[in-house]
């Protein structure tokens, strides 16, 4: 850790318990908070939304000491509201998705774009340097990638990062909230209409324009299945056939 404490912001949304529907801290944002706590430094939590929400206090129990609150009406532009409080931070952490609303995962990207900062997503570990930070990204199929990114930067934390947020009631009592003035924003009507979720989404498929005869044919004739079958030759030839297949499809480096 460098002599001057790093200023770290964690973007926090309000989550929702999937069973009871009650408000709670957002799971993904708690992971970001825990990663930020492990880095040390001067940590601030920033939330844009309803200032009277009691569940925000639970963020203190999970280790935040101060919360900057930007009042925002329901359906307001969260990213623009957050950006008003984000000047001067070295590192901005966020969860990958909110569970209480749209959950598009766009907020960290919009924040980074507005502030002109680099952003790395799916991060599971952070090492802070003087002018840059080294992060480890989780990729598909269990792979990892190390990336060096210049500071200041925005980092979105992988939803399955191996950190465990811990709850302590004493910390909940000690936290303090600073409420700022609501930014002047024109209310924008959301283009989304919400409804209760159906059983299963309908697949997008081409309109059926085939004749009755063609439909009958496609119904009785199964799709061609099975690939190449190699029955002749010695086991050595067959082993070479397997290796040739793997090489042809670039599945091994040969």
């Amino acid at each position: 850790m460098t002599a001057t404490a790093r200023r770290i912001a964690v973007l926090a949304a309000l989550g929702r318990n999937p069973v009871s529907g009650k408000a709670r801290p957002n799971r993904d944002d708690l992971l970001a908070l825990e990663l930020a706590r492990q880095l040390g430094g001067d940590l601030t939590l920033i939330h844009a939304g309803n200032p009277d929400e009691a569940a925000l206090g639970d963020y203190f129990a999970y280790g935040a000491s101060s919360l900057d609150l930007v009042p925002l009406a329901d359906g307001g532009d969260v990213a623009s509201a957050l950006v008003t409080r984000l000047a001067g931070y070295d590192l901005i952490l966020a969860g990958s998705r909110a569970e209480g609303g749209e959950g598009s995962g766009l907020v960290p990207y919009l924040v980074a774009e507005t502030l002109g900062l680099p952003i790395v997503a799916d991060v599971i570990a952070i090492t802070l340097g003087d002018e840059a930070t080294e992060v480890t990204q989780a990729l598909a199929k269990g792979q990892r990638r190390r990336v060096r990114v210049t500071l200041p930067a925005v980092i979105a934390v992988y939803p399955k990062a191996l950190v465990t947020p811990r709850y302590a009631y004493a910390r909940r009592l000690a936290g303090r909230v600073t409420t700022y003035v609501a930014p002047a924003m024109e209310p924008v009507a959301s283009p989304w209409h919400r409804e209760a979720a159906k059983k299963r989404p309908v697949k997008f498929r081409a309109a059926e324009t085939k004749s009755g005869h063609a439909r009958m044919l496609s119904a009785i004739v199964a799709e061609a299945r099975g690939g190449a079958v190699i029955a002749a030759g010695t086991p050595a030839d067959k082993a070479q056939a397997i290796l040739a297949y793997l090489r042809l499809h670039k599945l091994i480096d040969w």
Binding site: P18, G101, G103, S104, G105, H193, R194
Partner: peptide, 25 residues
């Protein structure tokens, strides 16, 4: 629109609030 689960020429749908709601636009 991200995490689109249903689409048609008339619009898209995405699941919100962890799958409890479907939102259309």
């Amino acid at each position: 629109a991200t995490h689109v689960v249903e689409l048609a020429p008339t619009g898209v749908a995405a699941s919100w609030r962890g799958g409890a709601e479907m939102a259309r636009r």
